[in-house]
Design a protein around this nucleic acid. Structure first.
Lengths: 328, 328
DNA sequence: CTGTTAGCGCTTTCAG
DNA sequence: CTGAAAGCGCTAACAG
């Protein structure tokens, strides 16, 4: 059987309270006593059982990370994988553990905390119903939204609107007059913001983004491909396109090339996110870079603040930057 | 304050044991009583606190997943991301939770279990010291190795030797006579097995794999690129190359093309793993497919067996298949 | 069928 | 400075 605090106590000839004090690095323990306890721990190969401690203190040092995405398993998403990487990093630095929740069943989100499995929740992604967000906000538990925002919840997100603007300006500067926007879907709030920023900057410059130049191709790896084809079929070929994300941009390039159009000579293409693949593609993809790692690590930091009783910054919006490569 | 089992009991006018029975779906509870308890739970918005339960039963329903890889954060590795996806899937189906451990500090591996945080451990990857494996084996805890194997531990791995053979046969059939092998490093046990299988099949056919045709280029994204250059500098250009994995194959192609060689016309290139990117590359990569998802889900299944007291298959070795595409 | 009771391993007053 | 004792919320005999 595993050694418990009692075994250590009796071996060191002290009370269990003293062992606990030593283990928790409290002061007011005589050096000699401390040594004796430590020796007993070593002899017995003792490791504290956190369940007992958690039951008493109400904290587990586990952080739940729930990712919302239509595509399962979520971990395969090249964007969120990096976000999780950032979270992982920050949590490890703080000595916390990461409990990953895939959440096919959405309803058990807050239960992770109610069951005492985790101290707080990092909810990543914006594919989550308002009702669920409302429930999270009302739960009173420490929750931080990442890559999403909602009234009443601490959040770390991206300035998608500004990113769309950046893309428009880049295209405009190259002399584009027939812009297009392709995406997997047009419901994703982030995508919509990107589109709106794009449209707004275009209009400011007197360039119209026609509705025939906006298309969604479906939530698969080829969404961008089909969206692009739809645009090509609907009217004259665009001379500049912004894709809602990099995978869409990459597959849009394929559709363009299949139609006999050259990138960037005939049409300039800009992606969004700057996933690792973007730099490796042929042609290398010009894209609006999202700070994925920071999204994750800052989100974790906010949650850590919340747990520590520090009032964190409520709403954090990270700026994007345009990374100019070959495709535009 | 959160409602506890006591609150539910008194509200339903029963003992706490009865509440526990209802919650655990035990029989021998009168229907009327059960209804009363359930109603009380609903009224109070009661959710069971798993800490108490775990302390008593000694099980948490949390499974630790530790990934060993030189490259952090691990989640970014396109190979392991899929393996984790498989694990995630299987664990969720079993109602278990996934505790991800990045493990910069290797020594706390088994402590995750000793602390009572997890019921068992899935250790993924082969970049782990024998001493650590030995400790895991001796710990007596439920542990399963994934993509690795070790005497005395249950494991699910890949038949890398056979995969290397498959690649050799494919190259041989195309008439190759000057084979090469490129990798990020030559220490990785999986890579070595791939190399050995490759070499063995080549020799059986009377084709020699010269030491100048074997190179490592370093553990970065460009490892394959540098390895390939090294081979090209060391002697006559090969006419067929096997890379230790797909990223290496892809970047080896770049090196080849930069040297004015065409793939597959001048030299055929075969990758290993069949990551998602392989099919999308230009030219599409011929590769030895590793069952990544199965590696994960089977590994999880074995651990679940172990936890359920079922004697699992000790050693599982998954076969590979050759996926012929354009590059060879 | 149901209630009482005794802990699981730990932290934390409260008295020495 | 240290020990005794009281639970944290739950499960599992053991009696009814």
């Amino acid at each position: 059987m595993r050694a418990t605090i009692k075994d250590v106590a009796s071996r060191a000839n002290v009370g269990i309270a003293t062992v606990s004090r030593v283990l928790n690095g409290e002061e007011y323990v005589a050096d000699a006593t401390r040594e004796r306890v430590l020796a007993a721990c070593r002899d017995l190969g003792y490791t504290r059982n956190n369940l007992g401690r958690s039951l008493k203190t109400g904290a587990t040092d586990n952080i739940g990370v729930a990712i919302m995405s239509r595509h399962a398993p979520v971990i395969l998403n090249p964007f969120y994988a990096v976000v999780i990487g950032g979270i992982e990093q920050a949590l490890e630095d703080a000595g916390k553990h990461l409990l990953l929740s895939s959440l096919r069943r959405r309803d058990d989100l807050i239960d992770l905390a109610r069951e005492g499995r985790v101290d707080g929740l990092l909810v990543v992604g914006c594919d989550i119903a308002d009702a669920e967000l409302q429930r999270l906000a009302e739960s009173g538990r420490p929750v931080v939204l990442v890559d999403n925002e909602y009234q009443g919840l601490t959040s770390v997100s991206t300035d998608n609107h500004q990113g769309g603007r950046l893309a428009a300006e880049h295209l405009l500067a190259a002399g584009c007059t027939r812009p297009a926007f392709v995406a997997e879907n047009l419901e994703n709030p982030n995508f919509r913001q990107r589109l709106e920023g794009f449209r707004a900057a275009l209009e400011t410059a007197g360039v119209q983004l026609h509705s025939t130049g906006i298309a969604a191709g479906g939530d698969s790896w080829d969404g961008g491909y089909y969206a692009m084809r739809r645009v090509l079929e609907a009217g004259p070929a665009p001379d500049g396109v912004l894709a809602a994300n990099d995978p869409a941009a990459l597959s849009a390039c394929r559709a363009l090339q299949q139609a006999g159009l050259r990138v960037p000579d005939d049409v300039r293409v800009i992606g969004f996110d700057d996933i690792h693949l973007a730099a490796q593609a042929e042609p290398a993809l010009t894209t609006v870079k999202v700070e994925k790692l920071e999204l994750g690590s800052l989100g974790a930091t906010r949650l850590l603040d919340l747990l520590a009783g520090v009032e964190p910054q409520r709403r954090t919006v990270l700026p994007t930057t345009l990374v100019a490569r070959a495709s535009a």
